[in-house]
Write a protein that binds this DNA or RNA. Sequence first.
RNA 1: GGCCCGUUCGUCUAUCGGUUAGGACGUCAGGUUUUCAACCUGAAAAGAGGGGUUCGACUCCCCUACGGGCUGCCA
Length: 467
Amino acid sequence: MSEPQVVTRFAPSPTGALHIGGARTALFNWLYARGRGGKFLLRIEDTDRSRSTDENRDAILAGLSWLGLDWDGAPISQAMGAARHAEVARQMLAEGSAYKCFATTEEIEAFREAAREAGGSTHFRSPWRDAAEADHPDVPFVIRLKAPRVGATTLVDEVQGAVTIGNDQLDDMVLLRSDGTPVYMLAVVVDDHDMGVTHVIRGDDHLTNAFRQAMIYRAMGWDLPVFAHVPLIFGPDGKKLSKRHGATGAAEYQKMGYPAAGMRNYLTRLGWSHGDAEYFSDAEARDWFDLGGIGKSPARFDIKKLENLCRLHIAASDDAALLHELEAFLEVTGAPALTQGQRDGLRDAMPHLKDRAKIFPELLEKAHFIMASRPIEPDEKAAKSLDDVSRGILAELTPQLQNASWDRDALEAVVTVLAEAHGLGLGKIAGPLRAALAGRTTSPSVFDMMLVLGRDETVARLTDAAA
RNA sequence: GGCCCGUUCGUCUAUCGGUUAGGACGUCAGGUUUUCAACCUGAAAAGAGGGGUUCGACUCCCCUACGGGCUGCCA
């Protein structure tokens, strides 16, 4: 008998873009399921019609796709399940675990007001909890859960451990509104159950909600899923991550040019650990990820560490895959598409470009010698190394390169010999060479550029610069 | 207010009663170098505070402080 299949889910509400915290929650669920041959489902919690938009929904899906988090099946719309949610509420009503409450919002407000002043619990105690059906008035009503009022409830959370609260902390929450629509707390439970979700991994802002939800599971006789409430991500100042910390949306990082693999690695490691492992592959992450490795305290978002991981991942990426991701980056930023010549050049130069960039714009900066075409316009800094003396040396070097064998050793020999003849270090000649070839002070090694550019283009650029 | 959760270098973290409290990012100092980098070597840097329990606590318990969450006919 094998273990039952693991089913996790990510359930964002489409009231905004995919937040970095949400992205990590999705990642944890994805990692957990994928590492165990399970399923990772997506459910859009769009029951708040006034704040939910299709644009947000699409943006969230796009963000997940960017991060490489693929989900099984079609995304489920929570709003579409309203009838089923109501059905469950009615079943609870029939079975006596819920009741009709005819209290008006004014009455409830007044109750809370009084409770606050008295310093007691503000949980509404409905007078209708045990009312006989014969006494029910013919007015709109909500369906409330009949919560236990004595005793205590303990929930075992995979991250937080065993958590116990007194049942007097639980109130007779509304299940179905007076207009017949289900409330979030009901919808989540019904959907998770119907979708066969075995592990609920989500933000710890839902920890106390889990107790409310557990009441519904129990009333329906359903098995509780495994809960894992993950601490939220904070900004560098230790406050909840928000707009004033800068970018908070996953898509914003994509637009800034962070590679998805680096982001995945960073987000996985943020709040979760596997011994001293810091830098790891997706396969390792899937193998290692477990609920026990999740930390109990909120982690702060550290852009420097993200960048470091991104640099390592770019350097380790397969050239073709990297070029592919670079093109996708160009597309989301609205940059013009690559010409065939540029694509070929980038492909050839990729080994020399990728080991020095944290984000794509940096890689592109180093790739300027490919992106630009003759005549190469040196920028201000590069122009400084193209003085008359330098031009003279370049003019002298050009015919020698023209006749050199076109491999790294030969090229290096030619330049070194010339440098020595002028009593200069290689560095003194590399400056002007770089300026002539790339028009920038930042680029790959001059020899690597020559090899990628080829003899004709190299000679042409040097001739341009020497003129 | 009530209830719940959390607190190890600046940051992410290891440690699951006995360690000179380890690693990584960042920082600083040297080295190397055809630019920017990268790379190499080294350094500074931590158990919130107070009580217990124990031969021995970062680790277990209690209190305090601080941070966070929940307390809706929002999700």
